[in-house]
Write a protein that binds this DNA or RNA. Sequence first.
DNA 1: AAGGCTATTGAAAATCATTTTCGCTATTGA
DNA 2: TCAATAGCGAAAATGATTTTCAATAGCCTT
Lengths: 157, 157
Amino acid sequence: MQPDPALPNLNQEPELLKTVLNKEGFRFTSQRQKILDLFQSAALGHHLNAEEIHQQLLDQGEKISFSTIYRALHVMVRLGLLQELELAEGRKYYELNTPFMEQHHHLVCVHCGNVEEFEDATMSQVGSSESTSRGFSLLNCQFTVYGICPSCQSLLG
Amino acid sequence: MQPDPALPNLNQEPELLKTVLNKEGFRFTSQRQKILDLFQSAALGHHLNAEEIHQQLLDQGEKISFSTIYRALHVMVRLGLLQELELAEGRKYYELNTPFMEQHHHLVCVHCGNVEEFEDATMSQVGSSESTSRGFSLLNCQFTVYGICPSCQSLLG
DNA sequence: AAGGCTATTGAAAATCATTTTCGCTATTGA
DNA sequence: TCAATAGCGAAAATGATTTTCAATAGCCTT
């Protein structure tokens, strides 16, 4: 799922979640706040999947259902608060959305699954020029590089 | 699934499939040939998912099971004949693998799902320099741009 | 502050793509 | 030619995500 193009992507301010939700007819709930908190307390650019969110909330004593997690993630993607990533292997990851020109990209080890982030302004430029030249309105772009990380290379001989 | 980095990606020659398969201990079967034929008869860079492969083979009077399709796709990805794409929406697409420096990338309309391809050598350069600077051995990279296509923009007003 | 409308929740069932199991068949290499 | 076993199809299993539904809670109006 991709964000609604008409909506701004504001976050970082405390207690803004309610405002952003209500502006679009969604309701503020403690579950949505707790999920967003997880992303905001993690390192910027750290990505989580539904399973990890569920586990982290359990660890801090919060009980929440998977349906609620998935619904909250979809809403926050639509509001531009989160970005959905297709890293690999059949599940979706989410991370805090960042302003377009600061988007980072991913280097995935296909052996151990480890993911490193990197930034490169070229991506946004190419994505932007490519989409405007074809009349697309740009939402976001993902550059994912697949390879084998140094430690897996030595393991594999 | 990503290709085995040690293996070359040869295709286009007729009857090469058997050779490539046997070289790695896999067996040549008519089902695998038919699947590869679909990709080779389609426009270069055209991507297909398992469902579409199954349907196209049914349309031409061939009966094949989904398990066989999935197994064949995995084998051909491992052999470097096909490349697996994570375009969007929970299913995997496959296309003929191309030499690394000629890889193309995708512009996806998140509204109608239409996908356009484009080439840009910058991607491969960035992917390559990024992975070598971190000691990764590079397999491939995917640049996916999400937006809304012109016709959907007018539909949405 | 109270009340109604309805979005949201949790639990369980349902989906959907993909993977695995298993008995049978077909390909490869000797 | 023939045995060993990779691959096949059908059906069951899996795993992530989505939907259903009755109960609850947030938001708006009064």
